[in-house]
């Protein structure tokens, strides 16, 4: 019986894959050919004929080498990652962060209501904040749409939609508590309720708005593609 690994290695010599990948491809193909050979031997085919018939499973070694190179190319994965995740994630992050100052500068203006009830809960800041949250629905939908068009899965879309709030989450969970430990003044001024409000205002609500805009887009885009 031939050394199938050596045989495949020789026939695929010069395959453009990294050594680990090439070794795996060679192992797998050698295993296939060896099983084929053994199967022919069990059927009573003579050794040389069995080798020949097993090798008939490969029409053209050159073609096999090219097909393997293409199939195992890692660049394809990298490109996919960029188009499905990084590009929409950066767009979503950029828009989510620039829209707040833009709305603050050019967005709806607060006008005092003549009734006392109208004044309750509608400060200029709240008005801008709510407008920003609403805009995040569209930002989320855009990010999900870009990812979906590139073939992004639900999981990828979920990750890119929460991506813009991750810096804030890191700040509230790690940065601020660390500062509170290191700086007594901050520790005195920041209360637990304020910390929770900040977490809700900068992480939970914006994250929910992005997801609320993006996840329905996943279903919408999936239905259009099918």
């Amino acid at each position: 019986m031939p050394d199938w690994c050596e045989l495949v290695r020789q026939r695929l010599a010069g395959i453009r894959l990294d050594p680990d990948d090439a070794a795996q491809v060679i192992d797998e193909l050698a295993s296939h050919l060896e099983e084929s050979y053994q199967n022919f031997r069990r059927e009573g085919v003579a050794e040389q004929a069995a080798v020949g018939r097993a090798l008939e499973e490969v029409d053209n070694w050159q073609q096999l080498r090219s097909a393997m190179e293409l199939a195992r190319k890692k660049e394809i994965d990298v490109n996919k990652r960029v188009t499905q995740f990084w590009l929409p994630a950066v767009v979503t992050l950029f828009l989510a962060n620039t829209l707040l100052p833009v709305i603050q500068a050019f967005g709806p203006r607060w006008t005092p209501s003549p009734t006392p009830a109208g004044l309750i809960g509608w400060s200029p800041g709240a008005m801008v904040y709510v407008a920003w949250l609403v805009s995040l629905l569209f930002v989320g939908a855009l990010g999900a749409y870009v990812s979906r068009r590139a073939g992004g899965s639900m999981r990828v879309e979920f990750m890119l939609l929460v991506f813009p709030v991750l810096p804030y989450l890191t700040f509230f969970l790690i940065g601020l508590p660390l500062h509170m430990i290191l700086d007594e003044r901050i520790a005195r001024n920041v209360t637990v309720p304020a910390l929770l409000i900040g977490l809700a205002a900068w992480v939970i609500l914006p994250g929910s708005a992005l997801l609320s805009g993006g996840l329905p887009m996943h279903y919408f885009a999936s239905r259009r593609q099918s």
């Binding site: 491809v25 193909l29 296939h32 490969v58 029409d59 053209n60 096999l64 097909a67 393997m68 199939a71």
Partner: peptide, 9 residues
């Protein structure tokens, strides 16, 4: 399937 068709798939 030949090997060139099966494994890439």
């Amino acid at each position: 399937f030949t090997l060139a068709a099966l494994y890439p798939m």
